[in-house]
Nucleic acid binder design. Structure first.
Length: 709
DNA sequence: CTTAAATACTTTTTT
DNA sequence: AGTATTTAAG
């Protein structure tokens, strides 16, 4: 096949087979190109059938794109290839095999909120106070244990203090609950295949034989279970190629283990190592700035990516008085860039450290009528109204899913209150059966007659739809649920702007299902639910639509935009406060900045506010982030926000400081000016305060008030 | 049992 | 400021 599009290094990496490949690929060095060409090369020139290739990407969207691009390079059908995220590949495998572990193949995947609700009830079961023992914290602890491949039995043995003991106890109950509900959480999705490989060697062999070549993208962000997964598959033939960049490792907090990439050769044996260092994405200025910040990390192998691209515009530093002015300023900069037709809205991304920062920017975008799209935050499928519908579908697909059942037992309200539900749960625990089967024989539970009547109707409807599962398509199924359980009526009755919006979201959800049903040949409920659980906002994102994109820096990994704004560059926000004096974590923040900056192709704006509102009330004074102050002067240019310069003009006209004037300072109190340098707001003023303390202050920061006698 | 009002809590990042 | 949870009134 034609490999002319590759540079020498890329070409070598693409055609290297016969031993493990480790490719260090700097930001923008064309690693996606290498991976797609390598897959195409394996199929066309090496003659490997597509179904024998496994390629793991970081998002489903990246997987889709990779598949498309490989297909473009080849003239025959490659749809049998396995390209996907670790989670989706594992889920597919488990749908075929998990019955060997005694679970149902139509298991449900619990997302974070689902898991937390199970953990919450587990904590309550132990008689602990959920205010003192936060479900979210327990979820994190359990998740960390799972990422270290520690079972609850081992956790119980290892527990050496009160908290870890309790964590182990909750872990055990939680895990039992999951299996009773036929549910897996995100971590289990990675762990169950390993369990399967361990207990059923013939199944391991089957997949080892199937996947003759394994490729992994974003390898620096793989965790232990993910490593074990690919190691199990590739350890014998050692036909594996991983691509990553240790400078872009930003998921340490999720258990990603940077030693996976650094010790690759130790694990897989003698390997061929490639380094892609030419960047095709960004201007020289952007790369210089990114390099200056990342080079402050001590725990890294020094390397510098280079480019033949032009120097480009300076990095713009935007200082603002507060967060809402920051949002205004970002908007005016967007208009400045788009008004001449030079850039479109979809050339622009606004990045931030925390999702909460998006709201104020979103607010301005909406007011200005600029089209935008937010990725992350509260995900579409996590909205209450969508989860309610999903809960119906999940219950219908898997009657043992207690979490979903409890969610909808009294939604829309049908007169089954707290006391009845508690009695039902208690009874189900006593007889050790699922809640739905208790409802099936509701006469055994001591609750009110009208409640029993309603439950019987509810159960009959669920059973009826459950029985039609294989005979009607997903769209009709959803419509039937909405009709039978009078969901639309529920929102119509409220008729508030909120309820109308919720109903609109449900309509969008229905449209999504119609689309899904048209696209996929073997669409069915179980597959649809799986896709919904594993699909993220990025996966659904259409970058052709002309709208500004907002997302966290974490979400931006692997993407590129002509114009990038990084907002909220303040000490305590980015880098985030908990990490200001913890070196490992600070280094990860630094890598995060590096990732954000290297998303930019042409222009990079870094903005910060001197005051930031937190929790709606308190306004915190902020210091500019070290990531800005560390940048070399020759690469940057300062921009003052409009409001700021306007305000300064007013002040500098009105106020002039003179020697001998009395002034008031918020901290030092009353004082007398003894020296003035410069004019107006920019002037430096020396003041002697009470107690003969002499201070030299810059007027615009000191906020001195003139005292008239 | 339901609804509305009061109050508590949030902000690290995600498959 | 916005959302989730708890409490009080109906």
């Amino acid at each position: 096949m034609n490999l002319d599009n590759l540079n020498n290094k890329q070409l070598e990496a693409v055609t290297s087979i016969g031993q493990p490949n480790l490719i260090f690929a700097g930001a923008g060095s064309g690693k996606t190109r290498v991976l797609t060409y390598k897959i195409a090369y394996l199929i066309k020139d090496v003659g490997l059938p597509p179904e024998n290739i496994l390629a793991v990407t970081f998002t489903n969207k990246a997987a889709q794109e990779m598949k498309l691009r490989v297909q473009e390079l080849l003239d025959f059908d490659i749809s049998s290839i396995s390209i996907g995220t670790f989670h989706s590949i594992s889920a597919q495998l488990l749908r075929k095999e998990i019955h060997h572990l005694g679970m149902l193949n139509n298991f449900i995947i619990y997302d974070q909120p689902d898991s937390i609700s199970v953990i919450k009830s587990s904590i309550k079961d132990l008689g602990l106070d959920i205010k003192q023992f936060e479900p979210k914290t327990f979820k994190n602890h359990i998740s960390q244990l799972k990422n270290k491949l520690i079972s609850y039995e081992q956790a119980e043995i290892l527990a050496d203090d009160f908290l870890s003991q309790k964590v182990a106890e909750v872990y055990k109950i939680y895990q039992n609950q999951l299996s009773e509900n036929s549910a897996l959480d995100f971590d289990d999705l990675l762990l169950k295949p390993l369990e399967l490989f361990k207990t059923m060697p013939n199944i391991l062999k089957k997949y080892q034989n199937k996947y003759n070549y394994v490729l992994v993208d974003e390898y620096q962000d793989t965790n232990k279970p993910q490593f074990e997964f690919i190691y199990s598959l590739a350890q014998n033939h050692r036909e594996i190629c991983v691509v990553g960049d240790d400078d872009q490792s930003i998921y340490g907090w999720r258990g990603a283990d940077i030693s996976n990439i650094l010790n690759f050769s130790d694990a897989f044996g003698e390997s061929k190592i490639f380094k892609l260092e030419q960047n095709y994405r960004s201007t020289q200025n952007i790369l210089d700035a990114a390099y200056f910040v990342i080079s402050k990390n001590s725990n890294r192998a020094d390397k510098k990516i280079w480019t033949q691209n032009k120097k480009g515009e300076p990095i713009y530093i935007v200082e603002n008085l507060n967060d809402s002015i920051e949002a205004d300023k970002i908007l005016s900069l967007i208009s400045e860039n788009t008004s001449k037709g030079e850039y479109d809205f979809n050339d622009i991304v606004i990045l931030y450290r925390t999702n909460a920062q998006s709201r104020i920017i979103e607010d301005r975008l909406r007011r200005q009528g600029i089209p935008y799209h937010i990725i992350g935050g509260v995900k579409f499928y996590e909205r209450k109204e969508i989860k309610d519908i999903l809960a119906y579908l999940r219950l219908i697909s898997n009657l043992s899913d207690n979490v979903s059942l409890l969610r909808i037992l009294n939604f829309p309200v049908r007169g089954i209150g707290k006391t009845s539900i508690e009695k039902i749960i208690k009874y189900s625990k006593e007889i050790g059966d699922s809640i739905f089967s208790v409802l099936n024989n509701i006469d055994n539970v001591n609750i009110g007659i009208s409640q029993k009547k309603t439950i019987k109707i509810f159960v009959d409807k669920i059973n009826e739809i459950h029985n039609t599962i294989d005979s009607i398509d997903v769209v009709d199924l959803v419509k039937k649920v909405i009709h039978e359980f009078k969901i639309k009526e529920h929102y119509d009755r409220q008729n508030t702007s909120d309820s109308n919006e919720r109903w609109q979201n449900i309509e969008e959800f229905i449209n999504g299902i119609i689309e899904y049903n048209d696209e996929k040949e073997e669409a069915n409920l179980v597959k649809f639910l799986e896709e919904v659980s594993l699909l993220t906002d990025i996966d659904k994102w259409n970058d052709e639509v002309k709208q500004v994109t907002l997302m966290t820096i974490h979400s931006s990994k692997g993407l590129e935009f002509p114009i990038v704004f990084i907002s909220g560059l303040e000490e305590g926000l980015f880098p985030i406060s908990q990490y200001l004096d913890q070196n490992d974590e600070l280094e990860e923040e630094r890598r995060l900045f590096y990732v954000g900056a290297t998303r930019a192709m042409e222009k990079l704006y870094l903005s910060y506010s001197k005051l930031r509102r937190r929790f709606g009330a308190e306004i915190m004074p902020m210091l500019v982030s070290r990531f800005i102050t560390e940048l070399p002067e020759e690469n940057i240019q300062y921009i003052k926000s409009d409001y700021e310069s306007r305000k300064m003009n007013i002040i500098s006209k009105d106020i002039s400081y003179k020697v001998g004037q009395l002034v008031q300072h918020s901290l030092f109190g009353k004082g007398k000016i003894v020296e003035v340098q410069g004019e107006g707001n920019e002037s430096k003023v020396s003041v002697i305060f009470h107690g003969n303390i002499r201070k030299k202050l810059i007027a615009k920061y000191a906020n001195l008030k003139i005292v008239y006698e």
